[in-house]
Design a binder for these strands. Structure first.
Lengths: 118, 118
DNA sequence: TGAGTAGTACTACGTCGTGTAGAGGCTCCG
DNA sequence: CGGAGCCTCTACACGACGTAGTACTACTCA
């Protein structure tokens, strides 16, 4: 899947945080701290769309952009991808479980338990 | 931490797979299918060292390279890094737990249980 | 002791991804 | 009809990575 650049991720963050699709202009306004040219935002939105991180639909002359997947799904996928890198998934998973903090281990445990009950 | 390039990963794979440190020449021999110039291998080993993926110790005039961390540790760290990308770690973890295959969920469960017992 | 060999450090170059943005064109409101 | 707004295309610099050459050093063997 490949990771995202820094600006790309900022923009994804904005779209993930915002309910509903945004236009380039709106994104630009929300990322105002960086003072980017409008075309910069458009270019990045376009690239993200081409990489299937976003989908877009027409709204008059403008496009409205929306994440193709939730941030959680993206993160989970990244984690799985990391996992794929190893020959021994079991060892890596074990290691991972040992590495997360206690509260996170608790969350995992709970999620796994709920899984079991289905 | 940043990911690795393709050749970099091949070389890490060789070093991870091999018990004990290797010289550039040995790595080059083990990666023979790619027919690389010896200096290419050295350059990459050097970059990996600079990025702290490897450590090296002298062996006569040669260096012997060795992974700074196990592959599992690396993978676990990548997974944690992905996890850091989200605002809601709990949601991402839950999502992750739901996404792994059944047998992998089992492995996770077991690792977490063992954790608890300590 | 001199030459070859193996190993190192340094430098370099092409390519690709990404941040950044300009130029020019279409469209719709007033 | 003209300007504002949005789009598409093109471009450029920079850093990472794959790839490798050159030049220097040191050990070995005849």
């Amino acid at each position: 899947m490949k990771g995202l650049g820094e600006l790309e991720r900022s923009i994804m963050d904005i779209l993930w945080a915002h309910e509903g699709p945004l236009t380039a202009r709106e994104v630009g306004r929300l990322i105002a701290d960086r003072d980017l040219a409008p075309t910069t935002v458009m270019t990045v939105l376009d690239r993200l769309t081409r990489k299937s991180f976003l989908t877009r639909t027409r709204d008059g002359r403008a496009w409205r952009y929306e994440p193709a997947a939730s941030r959680d799904a993206y993160v989970a996928e990244l984690m799985l991808e990391a996992l794929d890198m190893t020959g021994d998934r079991s060892a890596a998973l074990t290691r991972f479980a040992q590495t997360v903090s206690g509260s996170e281990a608790e969350i995992l445990r709970k999620a796994l338990t709920e899984l079991e009950e289905e």
